[in-house]
Design a protein around this nucleic acid. Structure first.
Lengths: 345, 345
DNA sequence: TTGTAAGCGTTATCAT
DNA sequence: ATGATAACGCTTACAA
């Protein structure tokens, strides 16, 4: 690997000139255009790549951002990563993916790694409760800006972007109501997942508005700490066993909805003809399901983009003003995506 | 952020001692255990994190590996990343996720970034043809070890891990055959995807062995450059329109199978009662599908783990021997995963 | 325009 | 067990 001095020797220019040109330094404004072009050409041709370690050491800028996810194989996270990546792409910042694998131990190990690498910010997917607020404190305390994605935070230092769960749940139930459904069953999310409560509130509010009675016999509470296909299957099986009549189901999220549809199908009930089903999230598989799932989309990609943008703003403020920046709190509007799993009652 | 000298002042030990202890240097063997413990305690307490840039500059070890994927939001990639992450976790290497987004421009930009960051290796998910062999050459030429995952390579410098597509396809068709299916339809993958040909060869070989005639009227070739849900849907619609009888379908992969099942369902045919369907890959959604999909699993996580392990071996060899290392070529045995989408003819 | 030299934080070598 | 010092490659102020 070429050093700037070797490159200087080989090209006949001085290290100073090379550095000025390659960094577009203001001090280099009197260097002739010809020289600049020549230097860039030669750098390309000889394969000179300035050593980032030396650069960072000198400038104390790492241009690295940690992007932290509870589980990389979760499509919800993947979509967010996509958005974060796109937003960061045009910036000088390199995302460092940190996959916590829902493990405290991993998190702790990575904290050290990140400080050693002088990370300039943390963008954390925080939908899972595994990632406690206190865990992110350590970054905020060290003046590393933190943006949480997917959980409604209110924290002295931490910014956040999340979907408006209440409105989303409202959209879903309104859709069913408008299609004539009156006996609607609900599969509530696990208590440990913050979104559950917000979504339930949206449902209650809509029900009150249109004076739709919520029959507690049609409500099932999922157990466990995470939503899942199996959970949805179980919940629906339970509902069917009770023998209650209903023409539609609102599942906590898409995976739950998949499980529910599967249970309905096995029981010989056709979706949507005999029972409509709505999900939440709009994971990629929702569009491919059999039948394609009507759901509330929260554009994870958008969440990611917004999160990254907040980070970029924050870091820019911090570096120009030098002041601690107020955290930003954003809520994204959800969108109803109508597909084949719902029909008129 | 504390420097080693500040930490030395604050702790009363010398920078030398601190460095020796924190790095477990052999030269530090005569330092008392008590001192060692004390220094580690204080480092923790005062939050001393050695600056990696300085360290890397000095040692010319970045401990960074590029993990390159064509598209982070593809679950196939996500599963591989999971495996890579797990294997790398216990090593000193930090994965740097590079999401190419199927774009040449992005690839080129990242190449520069990676050289600047003195990446020590590249682990690339290469199932998509977007990632050409020649593109990876630039790393290999600069003595950066490259491991390709998901494509059978034979290259002078590049190692690779991939599933044995031929055997996999053989497993799938054998499963159908053993369940009494004789009129089997095939949805062949796009010509641009390398796997397609290998899988087809497995099918032909099995058919020859058991003297099963392959009726060309039951074979559809997918168009386009990638497999997809829509492609499967189209292909199946085409098959049905021809009016040919068949009791089972082998789809190119899981997404294709989902599309095919959807088309069958819409045509009023029950899966698996009236038509069995087999996929390939075993993406996460396969287990959740309606009905759950019988498929050939290729454990992407395993592929990732193996890929990362090959990298770790290679880099270790390279650093101890200093010699160029022979590339490793590994094929992973696929596994038949029987679920609900297939039954006896 | 270019050369010189200091300094970023760490580690390694020597001498103490 | 420690202190002094050089070196890793780059940027930048200053001098030429």
């Amino acid at each position: 690997m070429l050093t700037i001095r070797e490159f200087a020797k080989a090209s006949g220019f001085s290290p100073t000139t090379i550095s000025l040109v390659l960094n577009n330094s203001p001090a280099g404004k009197y260097i002739s255009e010809k020289t600049k072009v020549r230097i860039r050409e030669l750098a390309e041709k000889l394969g000179y790549h300035p050593n980032q370690f030396a650069r960072s050491l000198r400038s104390s800028h790492s241009h690295a951002v940690a992007v932290m996810v509870p589980d990389i194989s979760d499509p919800y996270c993947a979509q967010i990563l996509l958005g974060v990546g796109k937003a960061l792409y045009r910036s000088p910042h390199l995302p460092v993916l940190i996959d916590i694998q829902n493990s405290r131990a991993r998190f702790r190990k990575y904290v050290a790694t990140l400080f050693e690498r002088r990370i300039e910010g943390v963008i954390a997917v925080a939908n899972s409760l595994q990632l406690q607020t206190e865990m992110l404190d350590i970054f905020a305390k060290n003046r590393v800006p933190v943006v949480a994605i997917g959980r409604e935070f209110s924290h002295e230092w931490i910014s956040s972007v999340s979907v408006d769960n209440k409105t989303g749940a409202g959209l879903a139930i309104a859709h069913l109501y408008e299609h004539g459904h009156r006996r609607i069953a609900f599969i509530r999310g696990p208590k440990e997942v913050v979104d559950s409560a917000h979504r339930w509130r949206g449902i209650c509010e809509f029900a009150r508005e249109v004076s739709l009675p919520l029959d507690s016999k049609l409500v099932v509470q999922m157990e466990g700490t995470a939503s899942s296909y199996e959970g949805g299957f179980e919940a629906m099986t339970q509902l069917l066993r009770k023998g209650q009549r209903f023409t539609a189901v609102m599942a906590f999220d898409d995976l739950t909805a998949f499980g529910a549809i599967r249970a309905l199908t096995e029981a010989g009930l056709k979706v949507p003809e005999q029972c409509s089903v709505v999900g939440f999230d709009d994971v990629a598989a929702a569009a491919y399901y059999n039948p394609p799932l009507t759901t509330v989309g929260q554009s994870m990609e958008e969440l990611g983009k917004i999160g990254a943008t907040i980070f970029l703003h924050t870091i820019q403020m911090q570096q120009s003003n030098g002041t601690q920046v107020e955290p930003v709190l954003r809520k994204v509007k959800p969108v109803l995506v109508v597909r084949g799993s719902t029909s008129a009652a």
